[in-house]
Each structure stands twice: as C-alpha cells, then as structure tokens.
Design a protein around this nucleic acid. Structure first.
Lengths: 202, 202
DNA sequence: ACCAACCTACTTTATGTTCAGTAGGTGAGT
DNA sequence: ACTCACCTACTGAACATAAAGTAGGTTGGT
C-alpha cells in the first residue's frame, strides 16, 4: 500500500480506484441492471466524477465488459467440475452468500439480454450453454462410472438443474428473506435420490 | 368489427388500438424490459406516433401498469389452484408456448425490480410470494388428504418449484431451442415421485 | 359546441461522452 | 540544479443525443 516510490503509489492508487469502480459497478449491476445504472451513480459510489471514471474505462460498455470479465475470472477460480455434481450444486448457495454481486450478476444480465439483438446476448447464451453442458458432462460421467442411474437424459436433467439455480438466484435477489440453504438442501437431497441407481430407498 | 354506427366504429377503433399498443408493449417488455423500450418503439409497433400512444395511456408508467394488469387478468383466468399440483406445473409449459409475452413478462420484470426501491418491487414481491404460498397450500392440501408424503416442508418445496419454473422461463427466453416440454416432463415426473407417500417404487 | 383519435412541433430532462486544464511525478539531457 | 517532454489521475464545463412528455392543431363524427 505505502511504497517508498511516490510514482508506484500513484499507480497503485489508480489500480485501487479501478477496482473500486469495478466493485461498485458489479454491485449496482446486480441490483439495477445495465440499463438501470448511470455512470454518475457508479462514479459517485467509487468516489470519482463520471469523467474520472472514463479515465479508467473507455466507455460505459467497456466497464460492463470489464465487470463481466471479472465475473468470469471468479467462476474460473471457483467452479469445480471434477467433484460430485450434487456437492457442487449445494455449494452454489454458499457462493451466493459470499459474493452475491458477482454470482447473481448473470441472472440479471440474462434477462436484460434476452433479445437476440441485445449486445450481450451471444456472450450470455454461450456462457449459459457452457454451464448446462458442464453439468450434463458431470451427469454423463456419473452414469459412466455407475454412480448415477442411466435412464435419464443428461442434457434434460442438466437444464432442470441450471433452471433451478437460476430461479433461486432471481428469487433470492428479489426476496433475501427466503430460506436459501434449506431450499438448496432439499433440492440437492432429492437430486441425489433421483440420480442414485435403481435399487434404492428414499 | 364493422358497426353500422360510424361513431361506435370509431370507439371500437380506439379500443382496438389500445389493445394493439398493449400487445406491442407486452411483447417488447418481455424482450427488452421496461427500461429497454421507448414509447417510440411501442408506438411504431402499434402503428401510431408516441404522442398518439399517449392519447391512450397517460404516461409510459401508466402503460406499464396496464400491461401488468392484463397479465394479472390472464393469470386469474388461467391459474387453477383446485387441481393437482403436478398437473398444474406441467401445464405451465403449454402456457409459455401459448402466450410467452405474457407468461414470461414477470421473469423479466422481476430482475428489473430486484432493488427494494424499484418502482415495481413491492408489487412483484407480493405477487411472487402469493404464487409460492399458493403452491405451498396445494402441497399442504395434498399432505392433508394423504396423497403426498408429510415429511417435507411445503414452504421449502414450493420455493423450489417456483424457482424451477422461473428459471425455465428465463432460460427459454434466452434460448428458445431448448426442449421445454421434455424438461418440464422430467421435472414433474420426479416431483410426482417425490411427493408420493413412502411405500413407493420409481 | 363537443368529443375521439390522432398528428406535428416543441420543451425538458437525463446521460454518455468529450475537451481542456490542473496537480503531481519521472527520466533524460544540459 | 534545472529544464523539457511526457506520464498518471483526475476535475469542471460543455456537448450531443435521446426520450418522455406537452401544446395545439386537424379530421370527422354526435
């Protein structure tokens, strides 16, 4: 934080401000969406003027992409597609609590970019499909190793799981008073029962 | 359509235009959200000028509320909380196909009004809770009559069900190529198995 | 005279962006 | 030691545009 070199401190300050802006943008983005926020709001929350903000990011759209990039990096760091699917789904609730501004960002952005011509449509569609595919792969893997029953379509079940997670994100954003953990526990429990091979009692 | 009386025809034309505007607004609302559309776009799609639109609706916000009211009326006409829960959930897919602009409108509006200070927050929160409560009631009813097992929390399961439906609406809007019916069939199938009393084989 | 269903032309406000400038630091040449 | 060219991190004011809403007119029916 406090370097000997004043210039280094200056650069650190700049990077710091950049992060502040990014965090503010993420927070506001998940509450108001891309169209619901102004540079002024983000700038104020980050302690700069709109012009000052544009010193760090070329445009509002640029800032948006930077925020999404940060979110992607978070996912790359936290997503674990090597473990058990059910455990992984259960972990989503924790992550939602830890970093709601990041985790729930896509739920908001998705609905804002539903239209095929929307600026982020392609990117979000790709991302979403990637997520569904990853879940489907996990199911297939479990089926191959005999841990999961084989009479259900991985692609279909994956969609169901992703829909549930997505839906929970939306609902939780709207109403944070819901019993998030319990609902996730309930769902993962029933999921485990469903994926378990045939000779099985609840 | 074609009245004898020219004045009646004029009034009918007005009512007609009002409906056109409402339909256009609903369509655009579910694709671009409230903030993503302008009076100009809606007006153009309805075949009027922005000023012409404001002849039928006092303000943009007024139009929004009218669109939501129409959606509420649709729900009142189609929602059936007397039948079986599983059957009812299965029917959602049909309704999504029949009237996507109406059914999926709330999924979009919800994410746009996540913030407690958002203009529609209270209304959407109420509506959402009402939906969850209705589902929970259906579960409780089933438990009381012995059709459903009693060892699961109706409120929690209701949240899961609503989350799934909500999530499916979002995903389907983003990517209409998904096998909507299959996923719903899969989910309702597993739901039925889960709600069924203990001595039961899949 | 009055109303309905519009339209054209305008005002107002909000917002992204640009521009010119300021304060302070760096490193090279003299 | 001193200046010169250039850098980073900003600010304040101005600019351009878009979009909601308004004023007043027109047409045609009662």
């Amino acid at each position: 934080m406090s370097d000997q070199r004043p210039y280094a401190a200056l650069l650190a300050k700049g990077e710091d401000r950049r992060q502040q802006i990014l965090v503010a943008a993420q927070r506001l983005l998940t509450r108001h969406g891309w169209r619901g926020i102004t540079l002024g709001q983000i700038a104020r929350e980050a302690g700069v003027t709109p012009a000052g903000l544009l010193h760090h990011f070329a445009s509002k759209e640029d800032l948006l992409h930077a925020a999404i990039d940060a979110r992607d990096a978070y996912d790359r760091a936290h997503a674990d597609f090597s473990g058990d699917l059910v455990v992984e789904v259960a972990r989503v609730a924790e992550r939602m609590r830890q970093a709601p501004d990041l985790v729930c960002m896509f739920a908001v952005l998705m609905m804002e970019n539903v239209d095929p011509d929307a600026p982020l449509h392609a990117r979000l569609l790709d991302r979403h499909r990637g997520g569904v595919d990853a879940v489907a792969r996990l199911i297939r893997e479990g089926q191959r190793t005999g841990r999961y029953r084989t009479d259900l379509d991985p692609a279909v079940k994956a969609l169901e799981i992703v829909a549930f997670i997505n839906g929970m994100e939306s609902i939780w954003l709207l109403d944070p008073s819901i019993p998030l953990t319990q609902v996730f526990k309930e769902y993962t429990g029933s999921l485990a029962r469903q994926l378990a091979p045939s000779p099985d009692s609840p």
